[in-house]
């Protein structure tokens, strides 16, 4: 008996969590417009992966919710408003670094999960599963690179200027 359902379940969970993390960073940094918009754009990738995982899970007798977990919108509004009010303070940019670090960590976890699934699919010669991993995993890597690049871009200004 393979452990594919377990791997799918774990990925489904971690992708959902990554999507939520990206939406959270988007809300918390509304005054950093690029973070706000891009985080939402690439949260869609994780949400799409969640749907794809739920679809393929059926072939493995596993039921996963195809609807990505939702961020309560009221809380999102509060976060967005909070950032608009704090946008004039340089100190809050430290929070941005911390939040990007969290995205990077989550995305790295998801990436490893896809790695595990791809290896499993190859061993089982499950081409459909392998094809899914090959399609989704590059987007996870792009999410991770985004977080890395934003840290690289912002850290000097955050750390050096008073």
């Amino acid at each position: 008996m393979s452990k594919v359902p377990m791997a799918l379940e774990e990925l489904h969970r971690s992708e959902n969590q990554l999507a939520a993390e990206l939406l959270r960073i988007s809300d918390r940094h509304k005054a950093d417009h690029e973070v706000h918009h891009v985080a939402r754009d690439i949260a869609r990738w994780s949400q799409e992966h969640v749907r794809e995982l739920a679809r393929i899970a059926r072939d493995h007798d596993l039921t996963l919710d195809p609807e990505p977990a939702h961020d309560p919108s009221l809380l999102a509004k509060v976060r967005q408003k909070g950032d608009e009010l704090l946008g004039r303070h340089h100190e809050t940019s430290l929070l941005l670094l911390a939040d990007l670090r969290q995205v990077h960590k989550e995305a790295a976890g998801v990436s490893l999960d896809w790695e595990v699934l791809a290896q499993t699919a190859q061993a089982l010669k499950d081409t459909e599963l392998l094809e899914l991993a090959e399609r989704c995993h590059p987007e996870t890597l792009r999410q991770m690179r985004w977080a890395n690049a934003k840290v690289k871009e912002s850290s000097a200004q955050v750390m050096v200027t008073p």
């Binding site: 005054a31 950093d32 417009h33 690029e34 946008g87 004039r88 303070h89 340089h90 809050t92 940019s93 690289k152 871009e153 000097a156 200004q157 200027t161 008073p162």
Partner: peptide, 20 residues
Amino acid sequence: HYTAPTHLMQMMRYVEDGSI
């Protein structure tokens, strides 16, 4: 050259947060 040059809209953000 530690990172890409700061583009205008990001500069405005740094003026906004008081670091420029």
